[in-house]
Simulated assay, not measured.
Amino acid sequence: MVKDPGQRRAPVEGPRTGRAPLFWTRLFRKGYLADKDPRDPRISPLYADTSKHSVDTLIFTAEYDVSASETEEYAKNAGETGQAAGRRVILRRMRGCGHGFDKSEKNAGLRAEAYSIVVDLLTRNLDDK
């Protein structure tokens, strides 16, 4: 939430379908933030202290999503601090899709893949206990 929406770029340029116009994105951002510091980790997890996160963290991004780059930076930071504490950060960038990819029937295969990874991770963690 720190960068102006006009400066945010997806890792891969893709269709703009479903993206809100910049005017609305800025308006919603202003309403959401009000007078709050956008670097507050409750607003922008990129600035969170990741040293106390859970054992496993699973993060999905989408290559056409303007939030993907910052989310992947967060995953990198969390992975670096987590490694020393024996925690894993698993990052998967889903190809050929945008934000909310799992909500669209056209991405049913990607949704199945992502949900399968979630189930495998949860099952593995439950079996370890």
Rank of each mutant, 00 (worst) to 15 (best):
P21H: 11
S44F: 03
R29F: 01
R29Y: 09
W24R: 14
D49T: 02
W24H: 11
G31I: 13
D37C: 04
R42H: 13
S44P: 08
G31F: 15
Y32W: 10
G31C: 14
F28L: 15
L33S: 01
F23W: 12
W24E: 12
S51C: 07
P38Q: 08
A34Q: 11
F23Y: 11
L33A: 01
K30L: 12
W24L: 15
P45I: 01
D56G: 01
L33C: 03
F28V: 15
D56E: 07
D40L: 03
K52H: 04
L27R: 15
Y32M: 14
T25Y: 07
D40Y: 06
H53E: 06
Y47E: 10
R42T: 03
K52N: 09
D35R: 12
R42G: 04
K30A: 15
R42M: 04
K36F: 05
R29C: 05
F23P: 00
S54A: 10
K36I: 07
D56I: 11
A34N: 05
A48C: 14
S44V: 05
D49S: 04
D40G: 02
L46Q: 10
L33G: 04
P21E: 14
P45R: 00
L33I: 12
W24Y: 14
S44I: 13
R42Y: 03
R42S: 08
Y32C: 08
L46E: 01
P45N: 12
Y32T: 08
K36T: 12
D40F: 04
K36E: 09
D35W: 09
F23A: 10
D49P: 01
A48Q: 09
P38D: 08
P41D: 04
R42N: 11
D40E: 11
I43P: 02
R26M: 11
G31P: 12
I43H: 06
L22I: 11
P45S: 10
P45M: 05
L33K: 04
L46K: 07
D49V: 05
R29A: 12
D37M: 01
R26H: 12
K52E: 06
D56M: 09
L22P: 13
H53G: 03
P21Y: 11
P38T: 09
P38F: 08
P21S: 15
D56F: 02
P45L: 02
W24C: 12
D49I: 01
Y32Q: 09
